[in-house]
Design a protein around this nucleic acid. Structure first.
Lengths: 336, 336
DNA sequence: CTCCTTTCCGGTAACGTTATCGGTAACGTT
DNA sequence: AACGTTACCGATAACGTTACCGGAAAGGAG
């Protein structure tokens, strides 16, 4: 099946290809009459321009790619959507790309966006590891959201993030303040310098302030999925039944932990308090309603786009922005 | 900032552009030595080909687009991911595109995929309305998943779906069988011929079989979000407190309804049973665990890709496939 | 009437890649 | 020695679009 080109349209409308192109791009220098004629022919022929050809010719089309690390992560999905809202009407269109959290798709996705000649890149995901070092040699304005690149080999890229360390510290302090002492932490790999590692440091800060320390056995590593968190919590709480609070480095994990606790016959929050991070919508409707350290999704999105635009337009250097998070206490943490 | 082209690489490696292109596409007719030389230069220069130029030249690249209607829909997200898994290693790459459920983005997304010269399209979403009629004139192999196009103006497109009418009927029968009589239904617009309308018919079927009828006031229209479902349920159950069961046409809605019931002091399932549709992962970990009519995500994905492939390769006509769903009874529905 | 704008339109050369065709060298085969 | 075969490689023409330049026609100012 042959698809029409502007040449076909031009012929059918009795004008030149240039004119068709002009109409296609709503340029002013086409008379009312020709414009309507061309449009009519285009509509009749169900004409759709060739994005590849256009992209080849116009290098300045200002497309920015958003790579989301973690396919089923409601927090990142919500954030990604918020980013799309930031796309000003006449401005750069966004292309979304989801990659797996574990697999080595980052490099692949990066090459893809680069090969499409994107003029900017936003990365969403709390984890950065060696796989992300692939940005070397890709000279593109880049912003990492929800994780800082400060002090990493990737500092060439800007970043917009919370103060993860302070956030985690504040969270633990809230639990300590409510009389919890046997606190478990459900997080990820503590290696590296990403959000998860910083939060682990923040946890220690809080304990140190009180001259205490997180017991080693109470740090539980888990992937950030419901099923993994559930299983991890099940086996942990069987092992350490005296634990009376859990701080989870993601709301999804927190929800899995709550379910496991209930299955073990423990009540939340009467027996065990559970505190998450992210502020996903589900946390407002879960049983019990989830207490969490809410990240300001809108602000992160706007700030990321702003920083990227700045880099793209004025070639500015990388900046590292910190936005404030807020502790939201709901039902899953007991009263003081 | 200038980006290298194969011409630059060719010059630097002392070969012709043709040879570079050959290396880029792993063609056999390049000597070991030249191949390595070119590859080395490409690596050193951090060369990335121009996808636009390639796409322009090669019309046969077999790219298929997946349009998902509903941005924050965990069921559709899971289904979309499953689709990507179906992408055979050497076969067509998939491009994902999320559109809003309400807004008129469908036409826009369709044009986008068409302009990129996709060779096939999969649409994910239970709702089809006038906005989708835009497929007229777009002569592309298409498959609608989770909704049937049989008997609609869009029957040119294939579809893979459950038997929505039977599903809903089975769901209501399960509730009736457990002694529920005052059943509320939380669904969407009953107009049209999409999944939601079919499910509404299925509900009536079940009542008719018993010589009963769904009371008009007990059909609650709501958008399929947690917040809307919550609000709708809150006001409905205040109005009809004698209702003892709710059938929700999406798990997300069911979760919102449960939260509303608890806030009204009703216990689930002791006072009110709640039954959903979809089979999202959250339903396995919620409190109480959600009973649901589970759709076979893997099967839908595989079947959709298979039908599309068939249409693309052999130019086959549209087919309408029905896959079986299964009732999963968990905690949110009381025992018989 | 001339000259100068303004408005509108068309011809042509790119953009970066791949397909096609053709050519050269090296090696067997008779 | 002549020929066919194989393995490599290069020049060139597309692909569909837009940028650039130039030109015709119409109107306004002097």
């Amino acid at each position: 099946m042959k698809i029409d080109t502007i040449r076909d349209i031009a012929e059918r409308a009795g004008v030149s290809v240039t004119t068709v192109s002009r109409v296609l791009n709503n340029r002013p220098d086409v008379s009312r009459a020709t414009q309507e004629k061309v449009r009519r022919v285009m509509k009749e022929s169900h004409f759709v321009g060739n994005a590849n050809a256009r992209g080849l010719k116009r290098a300045d089309q200002e497309m920015v790619a958003v790579i989301v690390r973690g396919r089923q992560n409601p927090f990142l999905s919500a954030l990604a959507e918020e980013m799309l809202q930031c796309a000003a009407p006449g401005k750069a269109p966004f292309a979304l790309e989801y990659i797996d959290e574990q697999a080595d798709e980052f490099h692949h996705a990066l090459m893809l966006t680069h090969s499409r000649r994107a003029s900017g890149l936003i990365f969403l995901g709390s984890r950065i590891d060696d796989r992300c070092h692939a940005i070397d040699g890709v000279n593109l304005p880049m912003v990492f959201a929800t994780v800082t690149t400060q002090g990493t080999p990737m500092a060439r890229a800007s970043s917009v993030s919370m103060d993860d360390r302070a956030m985690a510290c504040q969270a633990i302090e809230a639990l300590l303040q409510r009389g919890h002492e046997k606190i478990a932490v459900f997080g990820g790999d503590r290696q590296g310098t990403d959000s998860l590692a910083l939060r682990a440091l923040g946890v220690e800060d809080a304990f140190h302030h009180r001259g205490m320390q997180l017991e080693e056995g109470r740090y539980v590593e888990t992937r950030f999925t419901l099923s993994d968190a559930y299983e991890a919590a099940l086996s942990f709480f069987r092992r350490c039944p005296d634990t009376d609070a859990a701080f989870c480095m993601s709301d999804t994990v927190a929800l899995g932990v709550i379910r496991a606790l209930v299955d073990l016959g423990r009540r939340v929050p009467q027996d065990v308090s559970v505190l998450g991070i992210d502020g996903i919508e589900m946390g407002r409707y879960s049983l019990p309603r989830l207490s969490t350290v809410a990240q300001p999704i809108g602000k992160i999105a706007r700030e990321s786009v702003a920083v990227l635009t700045e880099m793209m337009e004025s070639g500015a250097h990388a900046r590292h922005v910190t936005v404030p998070a807020s502790l939201v206490l709901r039902e899953s943490v007991r009263e003081a």
